[in-house]
Design a protein around this nucleic acid. Structure first.
Lengths: 165, 165
DNA sequence: GGCAAGTCGATGACATGTCAACGAAAGCGT
DNA sequence: ACGCTTTCGTTGACATGTCATCGACTTGCC
């Protein structure tokens, strides 16, 4: 504790690079997505997860867990998306407390027309800039960090982080 | 357009891993920072950049550029930090339009007592989980992406509206 | 000098995210 | 059957970030 191990030059470079990439990459991807498809990244993620299910429907809780979002955040966001006609809410048959989020035709249309451009942007600004070895390294490293954060005895205050399959 | 090149399995793994890491790592670092030092990540970054200057003072514009923040965002945030006594604003001698952000003693105290814990958290949740080769790879890859985003004729380098022909 | 254009920073309106609290409905143990 | 606890989703208050705009000042050009 007394003697903090500061980051050495290479570690510092990696850490600063990561933070700066996060900022700029997000900004650019969000900008293109808004411009080309009229969606925010949050919208895209919601629609994307929904469209990956056979019916285009998910329990709100299930969707929140998959996205690692708080239910509050998802609920607020769905309200806004609902007003734009991208999704609807239905009552849940098995559990009268719950509700089911349902992709509307407009919502499916939106994600299907947005996806190719978005994937292309991810390629152009990230994936295609990396060597195959770097892609693998990034995959390995990020998953290790995620497992570390999701697994150990952290939590304490937040009943939030849900592990997933 | 017509034939989007979707991500293959390894690319998908890297991309999803990155996004998930970003979410969880940010959440955890912010949580610890708030709990241990009463600072948000934004606060930390502002104080950190300020404390790296000899005088602990910077033009607002200069600080915004370093952080890649919009001036609006910085101005709003400084107002809040000012109310908490972490920084003050002074008029700029050379340019009557501008103002200078100044680190207060309380602000310096805050960053100095927060830094060791924060660096330790960055190590614990990221750096120390990586091999030296991965640290270098992450440094290389992120800088390449950042250069790509900042360099080309892609309109704005910063959150500043650029003229478009 | 004087005017047009650009830069600086602040601000208000608004979009989005967090947090704590709530009512309703399951679940659980007895 | 009955309470106690937990889970579900919503909500309101608030923190934060974005965007457009403004007034003040500087700069460039004639």
């Amino acid at each position: 504790m007394e003697a903090p191990r500061w980051l050495d030059e290479r570690e510092e470079r990696a850490w600063r690079g990561y933070r700066r990439m996060r900022l700029l990459l997000d900004l650019e991807l969000a900008r293109e997505l808004t411009q080309d498809a009229g969606l925010s990244e949050a919208d895209y993620d919601v629609l994307s997860d929904l469209s990956e299910t056979p019916q285009g429907r998910l329990r709100l809780r299930e969707l929140a867990d998959r996205m690692l979002w708080s239910r509050s955040r998802l609920s607020h966001h769905l309200t806004r998306m609902q007003q734009r006609g991208l999704v609807t809410r239905e009552e849940c048959a098995d559990d009268a407390r719950g509700s089911v989020v349902v992709l509307t035709p407009a919502g499916r249309q939106a994600i299907e027309s947005a996806a190719p451009g978005h994937v292309a942007a991810v390629r152009r600004h990230l994936i295609d800039l990396l060597t195959p070895a770097e892609v693998d390294a990034l995959g390995a490293l990020t998953h290790r960090v995620v497992d570390h954060l999701a697994a150990p005895g952290l939590r304490a205050t937040r009943p939030q982080p849900a592990a997933e399959a």
